[in-house]
Design a binder for these strands. Sequence first.
DNA 1: ATGTCGCTTGCATACGCAGTCAATATTCTT
DNA 2: AAGAATATTGACTGCGTATGCAAGCGACAT
Lengths: 342, 342
Amino acid sequence: MQQTDDDQAGLGGRVTSYDVARRAGVSQSAVSRAFREGASISAELRARIHRAAAALGYAPSHIARALMTQRSRLVGVLVTEATARNNPDILFHLGQHIQEAGNRMLVFTLPDDAAGDGILSDLLSYHVDGLIAATTLPEETLRRCARHGVPVVLYNRHGIAASVACDHTMGMRDLAAYLARTGTRDAAFIAGPQEAPVSEERHRAARAAFAEFGMTLRPAVHADYTHAGGHAATVAVLTGVAPPDTILCANDTMALGAIDACRHTLGLSVPGDVAIAGFDDVPQAGWPSYSLTTVAQPIPDLARAAVHLLVDQIDGRTTANERRLVPAALVVRASSRSAAAG
Amino acid sequence: MQQTDDDQAGLGGRVTSYDVARRAGVSQSAVSRAFREGASISAELRARIHRAAAALGYAPSHIARALMTQRSRLVGVLVTEATARNNPDILFHLGQHIQEAGNRMLVFTLPDDAAGDGILSDLLSYHVDGLIAATTLPEETLRRCARHGVPVVLYNRHGIAASVACDHTMGMRDLAAYLARTGTRDAAFIAGPQEAPVSEERHRAARAAFAEFGMTLRPAVHADYTHAGGHAATVAVLTGVAPPDTILCANDTMALGAIDACRHTLGLSVPGDVAIAGFDDVPQAGWPSYSLTTVAQPIPDLARAAVHLLVDQIDGRTTANERRLVPAALVVRASSRSAAAG
DNA sequence: ATGTCGCTTGCATACGCAGTCAATATTCTT
DNA sequence: AAGAATATTGACTGCGTATGCAAGCGACAT
């Protein structure tokens, strides 16, 4: 029923709506309408055309359709290597939701140093209907997107566009509250690379929260978001004079490196000698060798929200520059002191 | 110099080659040629047109170009959730190489149960120039791709198409040789899900290699590729009568779960009581808390090879159905017994 | 029986660009 | 200096589809 004789397309090029029209004995317009939801066409004709189309293995060309309708049903996604590595599955989740909305995901990968600007004209060349940027984009680029009518949603970033972000402030506040109750007085902060916006934001949130609870947060030590980076920074911090009682890392991977540094390089106990916390709740954080206290960043929710926000903009259903905050949840595990120890 | 007055595109729709032609005082054909590498046009004219184009913020439309040239410069990539999770960064690496070859990556994500067939007509609708499938595809689908002239490269899979795969046989043989030298006599194999082709292949390679070195490899215990799955399977295997002296896992994540099961649930020492090995060399395998002996699957190389193979096919430079094997490297760490212990 | 209205359908055109063909400008040859 | 060869350029058409417009057609009311 599905499989009739299929495509005799052979080598004769692709099957077009004209071929279907000829076979069904109708005009090309009718074929076009048969494949356009809600078009003015009778049920019988539509059925007949669909039969002919199935027999020929015809499917409408998105390319040609895009040219006519000015809607490509393509959503551009910008990622850097660092983003891809720190947010496992982010591309997959974005892809799922983009597809559920009837679109396709066109991925633009950038080297970490970026300058996501040069890519813009390329984006426009593909007539993307919208853009999800998990990358820092210059304001000028965002303005040009707006001028060209391309909606943009920033992922875990702020800027002159709609955005979706994890509620770092709230998450960090919950974490700080817990740490305060369990004996933290003086903490070091291991940050990501200098320019990393999420690290910046988490650091800002941490400063505010630590101040609120009367704890000291030392100036940030910058690392590179990796396990090795966290390891090295931790060794540096803890071998100085007057080591802190707690190490807070801008992401889980560095926190896991910190734990390994304590246990395997410095011979310190976690959380006995020093408490350690991260941010993200990557799968490894829950593994018994680490059992890292952290704040869960709900990537599936972020992805869903980003796509919905974008689709709403594309369909003109929403005001631009809307900002959506997705809650983050504190996850207490064994790398921080227990409540009794306070 | 780059930034002139840019687009006055405002709301008047997109800038076309006609707009540029008018501004530069030439024909539309000339504009087209100015943006086509190697076209017949004088250097001065080209420069003048590029100036006009820059002033207007013009870039040729890939969509329209695709319609004319029958080349979309779009490469489709098929992934399932499991693939995305087990091969971190795979999408990113594929994207990088696809872009270096002057194409763009159009991602098709599939739920794990798949049936990657329904997606084919959609693929063809986008006129993808080629396809990289990190998914199991029915033969019929592959045949239809061939009929439609869409080259396919299978990623870590075999089938009636070109393919790129990690050399599991050689990698497993090296691992088995090392294990044999260090005291392994009787090993359990923790496999992935029933249908997973890479797990199958690694299992087959392991059986052959273990036989060659005169070691026993017990029938596979199936798990789900996750840490929790490896943990549970390990507990089951080691609490039975006559536990094995070695546990070999179809991927690293399960092997890490196995280590955690031994140390944190069963109170066993690794490798003292049981040696453990995996396959992949994910970043966590090298972290000091685990230090897992494994076989490195070079994802960047696989990605590069896949893209090159595909591009060669697209450009007609290579025979179809070519198969490329990328070497895998044994990585000896502390989860297996040391050579002296043999 | 005639006019009107709503639903279908076909015709013709446009979307933005690449490439063919013929015309023109340029250079080289003897 | 004239003719041949070559390098540039422009007018025009087609890639595969969507849609405005007008024509056809049955139903319905008057």
